[in-house]
Structures are given as C-alpha cells and as structure tokens.
Amino acid sequence: MLEVVSLSKDFKKHKAVEGVNIFLEKGETVGLLGPNGAGKSTIISMISSLISPSEGDVRLHNDSILKHPQMLRKVLGVVPQEIALYNDLTARENLEFFGKIHRLRGKALKDKIADILDQIGLKERQNDVVKTFSGGMKRRLNIGVALLHDPEILIMDEPTVGIDPQSRNYILEQVKRLNREKNMTILYTSHYMEEVEFLCDRIYIMDKGHIIASGTKDEIKSILSAESTILIKLERSSDAFVDRLKEIAYLKTVTSQDKEVTVVVPKEVHPFNQIFQIADETGATIVTIDRKTATLEDVFLHLTGRALRD
C-alpha cells in the first residue's frame, strides 16, 4: 500500500539517502535497520513529507503523496526519534492537546485517551508532568501520542533508544499487539538486530544512504547460509595471530576488535585445528572459540565489513 521509489536526499553536497526502494503491504511489520547516520530518519521525514526528496517519489495506493501530503498524513502515525512532547504538561494534557489538533473532541477524545493510557501503561501517572517521567515512560507516551488518530500505517523511528530492558520489552509487545489486533502496518526503525528479528516479517538493511540487503529474515540470512561464523576470544589481543589467519585462503573474512576475532568460513570447512595451531605458533592464548549460524548482525558485518554498533 505504501511505496518508496528510488528516493534520494542531498544535504548540500552530502548524499544522506540514495536510490532507496521500500514497500509496505497492508498488515506487515517491516524493519529498517542501519547504523547511526545511515539515513533512516531522513527517509522517514521524506515519507511523512516533512522534508522534500531531491529525487524519487513516495506513493500511497499508487498515488504520489508529494502532491497531496494531506492524503498520507491522515492515515499515518509517526513516532519521532526524539521525544516530542510538552515537558511542562501532564501526560493527559499532552494527549488532550495532540488529540485536539487531530480534531478529536468531547467523548471521542476522552475515550481515546483512556484507551491509549491503558495501552501504554501510564494510567496511574496520567496527571504527572512529563518532565518527572523516566526515559521509558516518556518513550511510551511518545508512542501513545502517535496513536491518537487511529493511523493505518505507523512509522516508528528508534522507539526504544536509551531505555531499560523492561520498558523495551513492554514496547515491543505493544508494537506486536498493534500489528496483530488492529492490523496496523508498521515500519520499524532500529539499530538493534534483536528487535527487528523479533518484530518484523521483512527487513531492509541500510548503510550510508543505501539499501544493502532486503527480504524476509530467512532470505537475508541465506546470504550467509553457505557460511558460518567463528568467534574467537583471546586472552590478549594479538596482531600476529590475526595476520596469520588472514593469509589462509578459505577463511573468507577475518575481522578483529580488541581481544575478539571474527572469522567467516564456508559451511563445510572445519578450521579449528588450524586455528589452534596458529595460536600456538604466534603465542596467542585462545580463551573461547565458538561456531554459530548466521544472524542479521553477521549479515551486516559480511556486507559492510563493520559491526552494526560500535
């Protein structure tokens, strides 16, 4: 129902987004995954027509929304990355204000607010001023405000940044419920693999303004299906050890960070003996060694040669 077609955005000379294609079908939860500065928020701003694209188009039911931004805004709920609330008003007053500017009045507004306070679990704190809230509570209210006008499509820009695991799980469960019970179409942005793996049917992975992989979870992982990852922990970091590993032809990628060394190998290869031998020869001590099947994190690593988060 929603389609992003070869969307690009240049800020002065810097290309923040380039040639991005994304589509969302009704009732899907789609993940947009990428490290800091990948261009996720920029894409969201263009979808909600807060900024205009340098190139490309956004279409709702095959109609370009660049000409009729109001059309999409009516059915779109956006949870911004930053907490966009009035800090000096209470949770309830915030909901009242944003409800009113969405033209809700009287009983309809009251019922809606009660419903949302329930959903985001802030009933008891509804009359407290927002600035007295914890980070997790603010995040929840930030989501609640986006739900006031019953959007069909919900775009969430890193809604779990900087909060405790408990609040995070609560939010993830809520998102799942919104999708299941209200058949809401959701675009979920994050740089946490686990969240996206937990929530999403399909995933787009982006880096430096480009989509570098897309598809269902399994499709994406199949990029690495012929390979597996070996994680080695050393007692002390050793450049000699890493350099020797890199000389071995069948070890596809060798990356190291401090005492951890990650090696990608074809599935059929069993290089443990050789690795121990090299450790012996270079005087490195292996603390643990582990072979795992691919995760999204590995896919990202494989595609970019970098970890998703530093």
Binding site: L50, R73, P80, E82, A84, L85, F98, I101, H102, H149
Partner: peptide
Amino acid sequence: NEGVWDRIILSPT
C-alpha cells in the same frame, strides 16, 4: 528543536 512542531505539522492543523 524538540520535534513538537513537526508533530503538529503532521496533524490536520
């Protein structure tokens, strides 16, 4: 700066 303005822009206001 806080994003409240953008939120209002996204409403029918």
